[in-house]
Amino acid sequence: MYTFEIVRAIAVIVLGATGTWLLLPHRHGRVKPAASNLAGAALSLIALILLATLWRAPSNLLNGVFFYAFGIAALAGGVLTVTSRNPIYSALWFAAVVLATSGLFLLSGAQFLAAGTIIVYAGAIIVTFLFVIMLAQREGRATYDRMARSPGRATLTCFLLFWTLLYALISVRSPHSDAAAEGDMQVRLVRASQILQSKQMVPTKGNASVVVRALSPTNKLPEAEPHASALGQHVAGLGGALYTDHLITVELAGSLLFVALIGALMLATPKPPVRPGSSSQPPV
């Protein structure tokens, strides 16, 4: 079973590398025969299907169907983003990658991130579209889109990277440890008795709910913490974790956005070039 998986992974890497290499634009100065493109597409598709057989299907049928659809769509969109000759097609396929990734986020219980990714990247892709129409279309079918920079070596490097990650992922075995969860419960029991003693609370029902609320960590997903329903489910829980445990992260992210805004404004504003012989001082 294990060696069979290794063989399939090697087949995925070899077929995928060959297919992607055939799909990339080369420098031979001729019209690429359609058979070469077709062969590349077929090899990449076979590699993708073989890769999909390496996944273990989820127990839920509907989840499984959507997982396979989104996973295959993400990787196929990635191949097409990289190999499209026209940057407009690249941007469109990248939009497909983003949509598929948001679907995978939804499946893994990250609703807010799924929505946020679509919103942020929709803006980014529209701006990219504007740039492509504004800059690239002026030149028509540019030569640099039709000749990749050393496609063979780049494909070799990237599929070696993929092979390393894939080998590590399929050879790792599931860890079995519940010791951490038990230790966590022990810590919480000690902490509960400390709270009860220091506040001199009488263990009534109302006090008990207060203590439970105080003890339930903000950092746990609702799936992992069935008793913490008072803290709110998905998005409310994410907000709770974000604004209690990671408050400085939020501040830092805000500052980063502000600095990037200033930087982009400074970069994009047209300025007269400063030359060594120019007499006039540049405006400060």
């Binding site: 992607t20 983003t81 540019a142 494909t155």
Partner: peptide, 18 residues
Amino acid sequence: GLMALGTLGFLSRRNMIV
């Protein structure tokens, strides 16, 4: 897979937008 494909595009394509 997405990481490897992104690396491939960054290394081999010459269009700055891609």
